[in-house]
Design a protein around this nucleic acid. Structure first.
Length: 298
DNA sequence: TCACCGTAAGCCTTCACAGA
DNA sequence: TCTGTGAAGGCTTACGGTGA
């Protein structure tokens, strides 16, 4: 926005000199003369009376001076207002996550991020992968952590980074006969009562397919969508489960559950970070992306 | 004589537009 | 989408005119 004409006008009026005004505004004298002349042409009136070396406001100029000052003040206020809003926007980031990463990874991740960047405000949305995909495509969330690769990546607008590979492990209660083992063979699952998520969940599909390939016969005891409920049921000795290692990390640490790698199962889930490329222009988002990559060594 | 302002010429940047 | 070209605008430098 061009306010130089008004700034030149006000400065010349204050200093009674085009040369001094030019010096103050870091222009040359002819440049300021041209600006004043341009203003006079636009208004169709002389704004300054040239008296030899001294330059004085005409009546028209005196009339314009307070209005010009007001215009400059309004411009400054508007610029400040926009800068304030932009500063807030540049510190806001909306992180989305699908179920498993949202519950088991994001809270700790965000806590560490806030320790390092307390000035950034992180909003979190946890949704299923399909909902999260839609939210990202609509720009409702800035970046998403998914428990699988997402099809929107194929549009070319989105960046996708593989963060880490989360192995599927057997989860048993601390009194279960297998709890004393550090690893087990897949065929040791034979006859175990499994508590698994429903068939529409990727983990369940993968487990079913792999166990079928290995010809391991198990018994489905319960089918529950909520991983927290599954863990509580396992802890209450209602069966065993197969889930991502990160999901039972906290319970394993305190000894409520035991996570045992299954030799030969060779199943894992990859966790991805996805975001639209244009979002990198927001400093908070860029810093969060860098932080997530470093956090997962991706 | 000096300080200041206006004018002219030339240079640079930006923008719009056409063509590949 | 990128590149080249011409027009327009704005700036600086150089110089002339004017008044204290």
């Amino acid at each position: 926005m061009d306010t130089i004409k008004f700034r030149a006008f006000c400065t010349v009026a204050e200093l009674h000199s085009i040369s001094k005004a030019a010096e103050k505004l870091y222009y040359t004298q002819p440049a300021i003369s041209t600006q004043i002349r341009g203003l006079e042409t636009e208004y169709g009136a002389r704004l300054f009376r040239r008296n030899g070396k001294r330059i004085e406001l005409t009546e028209a100029g005196q009339e314009l001076l307070p209005i010009a000052r007001q215009i400059l003040k309004l411009f400054e206020d508007s610029a400040n207002a926009v800068r304030r809003v932009a500063a807030v926007e540049n510190h806001n980031v909306h992180l989305g996550a699908s179920g498993m990463p949202g519950v088991h990874l994001v809270p700790e991740l965000v806590a560490r991020f806030k320790e390092k960047y307390p000035q950034h405000i992180v909003a979190i949305s946890i949704a299923n992968a399909y909902q999260l995909e839609r939210m990202m495509a609509d720009g409702e969330v800035d970046l998403g952590i998914f428990g699988r690769s997402v099809p929107i990546q194929s549009t070319g607008r989105f960046m996708e980074i593989e963060l880490f590979e989360d192995p599927l492990v057997l989860v048993v209660g601390n009194n279960h006969p297998l709890a004393c083992q550090e690893t087990i063979e897949a065929d040791q699952l034979m006859g175990e009562s499994l508590i698994l998520p429903p068939q529409r969940i990727l983990t369940r599909t993968s487990v079913d397919e792999r166990l079928k390939q290995l010809n391991v016969q198990t018994k489905l005891a319960f089918e529950i969508a909520n991983s927290e409920a599954i863990k509580r049921m396992v802890a209450n000795h209602l069966g065993v489960s197969i889930m991502c290692e990160s999901v039972v990390k906290a319970e394993s640490r305190v000894g409520w559950l035991k996570a045992i790698p299954i030799h030969g199962l060779m199943l894992s889930r990859k966790v991805y970070l996805s975001y639209p490329q244009e979002k990198e222009s927001n400093p908070a988002i860029k810093e969060l992306v860098t932080f997530i990559r470093e956090y997962f060594h991706a």
